Simulated scan of single mutants.
Amino acid sequence: MTALTKGRNTPLVAGDVRALAVAAATVLFQGGIAMRNAAGYATKGATALNLVGIGRIEEEVDNASGANGDLSVRIRPGIFLYENSEGGDEIAIADIGKVAYVVDDQTVAKTDGTSTRSRPASFTTWTPMAVSGSSSTKPSCAPISASGAERNSTRC
């Protein structure tokens, strides 16, 4: 394909719910960060390499005693607010435009944890959220998954 020389009508593939096969020995909780492992199966967000962020888990699925693909889970790509790490891994306003990383199925961080974390996303932005009991603000983060293309970004 050659580069565009004029505008085009690029079809939108909406971020509708889709079903994915669940990885072996995995329990997924509704609302958690959904990722795909290297074999392509759905798993929860975790400090691990070779995972790709794909959205939010829409239902609880217990495949703890099952094999790859024994069960499926509904995943919704989109923008979701997740917890921000604390201390040196806390994502702040200075981190706008930088990569964010998954810590667990509800938390993201600004570092790769010494090369131990996967990215849910390719960049971060910042929405200030009031921190309970203080006058400061702290960002919360969320993966954004582009349905079909499996490209991800994060907003914090």
Rank of each mutant, 00 (worst) to 15 (best):
M1P: 08
L4M: 10
T5V: 07
T10F: 13
P11C: 02
L12M: 15
G15Q: 04
R18Q: 14
R18W: 02
R18I: 12
A19M: 06
L20W: 10
L20N: 03
A21G: 00
V22C: 00
A24E: 14
A24L: 11
A25P: 00
V27A: 11
V27Q: 13
Q30R: 15
G31Q: 10
G31V: 02
G32M: 05
G32W: 01
I33P: 01
A34I: 09
R36Q: 14
A39M: 02
Y41I: 12
Y41C: 05
T43R: 13
T43A: 11
G45H: 05
V52E: 04
G53Q: 08
I54T: 08
I54H: 07
G55F: 06
R56H: 08
I57R: 15
I57Q: 12
I57T: 13
E58G: 06
E60T: 15
E60Q: 14
N63F: 06
N63H: 00
S65I: 11
G66M: 00
A67E: 02
N68H: 15
G69V: 04
D70H: 03
V73N: 01
V73Q: 12
R74D: 04
I75F: 09
I75G: 07
R76Y: 00
P77Q: 02
P77S: 06
G78Q: 12
I79C: 07
E83L: 12
N84V: 05
S85R: 02
S85V: 01
S85F: 03
G87S: 09
G87C: 03
E90T: 10
I91C: 09
A92G: 11
I93Q: 14
D95A: 03
D95S: 09
I96C: 08
V99A: 10
V99E: 09
Y101T: 01
D105M: 05
Q106W: 00
T107F: 03
T107H: 01
T107I: 06
V108M: 06
A109C: 05
A109S: 09
T111K: 06
D112P: 02
G113P: 02
T114E: 02
T114G: 06
R119E: 11
P120R: 00
A121F: 06
F123V: 09
T125K: 08
P128F: 09
M129L: 04
V131K: 15
S132N: 14
G133K: 01
G133Q: 01
S135W: 03
P139V: 08
A142F: 07
P143F: 05
I144W: 01
S145K: 10
S145V: 14
S147G: 03
G148D: 00
G148I: 08
R151Q: 04
N152Y: 09
T154K: 00
